[in-house]
Design a protein around this nucleic acid. Sequence first.
DNA 1: GGAAGTTATATAACATGTTATACATTAAAT
DNA 2: ATTTAATGTATAACATGTTATATAACTTCC
Lengths: 163, 163
Amino acid sequence: MVEDVVRTLGFLCMGSRLRRIGERLQADTQQVIDEAGLSIQAGQYPFLAAIDRSGPLTIGELAQAVGITQPGATRTIGQLLELGYVDMQPAPDDQRRRLVSLTDKGEDLVDHSKKVIWPRIAAAVADLCGDLDGPILEQLAAIEDRLAAVPLARRSAAKEENS
Amino acid sequence: MVEDVVRTLGFLCMGSRLRRIGERLQADTQQVIDEAGLSIQAGQYPFLAAIDRSGPLTIGELAQAVGITQPGATRTIGQLLELGYVDMQPAPDDQRRRLVSLTDKGEDLVDHSKKVIWPRIAAAVADLCGDLDGPILEQLAAIEDRLAAVPLARRSAAKEENS
DNA sequence: GGAAGTTATATAACATGTTATACATTAAAT
DNA sequence: ATTTAATGTATAACATGTTATATAACTTCC
């Protein structure tokens, strides 16, 4: 067995550590989504959620809302356009800005997700770390240990059985 | 001002959130490294640290130690070879395994980093989140707020002045 | 009202993670 | 011993983030 340097080094490698846990979590989340038979990527959800919450938004506003750069938002919105979940048209007052809105298909997906998928994911993540407390490095260690012991998808399934 | 959906959605977007903070932290860390005039990427450090701690390791062991997949380790080690910080040669007993070790240049870099850079980074990150406590979502919010208020590089600089 | 600057989006080039798979070498089995 | 299976690394293809820059549309200012 090899030592986990990133964990050992603590604050020094906290960037790598957070990224690595985030990637793992998102991959596990994707599994839950796939098992539910939905054809969407975990990383695309925040965009749909943002429009659902605030109404049509421009590319720039979406980038801000999701916390990534504008080219990243442009690409993801391009994918959602292809999938038919959103529609994009120039703002009436300013032809530079593109207003992105949900299509009917997009609304359906969001409504269904709100009812079925999002609660399941949130519950699984809450099960994973909702009870934790204390210094962040300790919580991160606990999260990694717990994920290794019981993957997120099974926490989600367990939650559903109990409902 | 647009609402930060990822933050608002809490546990539901925790994967995205951790990733985003990790990326930000690592970018800020890179800035500290660059300002110190070192030609190395933040993401390459854990590999050097792993070898420094455990002695020569194979590609597979390095992947495990750093917590990424083997192809990722192969690529990063390729870069470190190019930079002259590591050396790689087949294991004497098993020609499939490649043992990666530090070159003199690599050792110098690690020694210098241990003295000058790593303590600075660790101190800056500790300044950022070492005093935090409580539920993880609250700590993450605090970290994002603090990073927005005072970037990591300046926390690092401040620490140095006080030393 | 037209030149010059600003802003919003798109695109190109790159970084770094992933999965799937090819290839070389070692171990196992008949 | 030779075939077959397993293992370690390399490579290809892709995903999704970034920075830098091009392009189109609006604003400003003489």
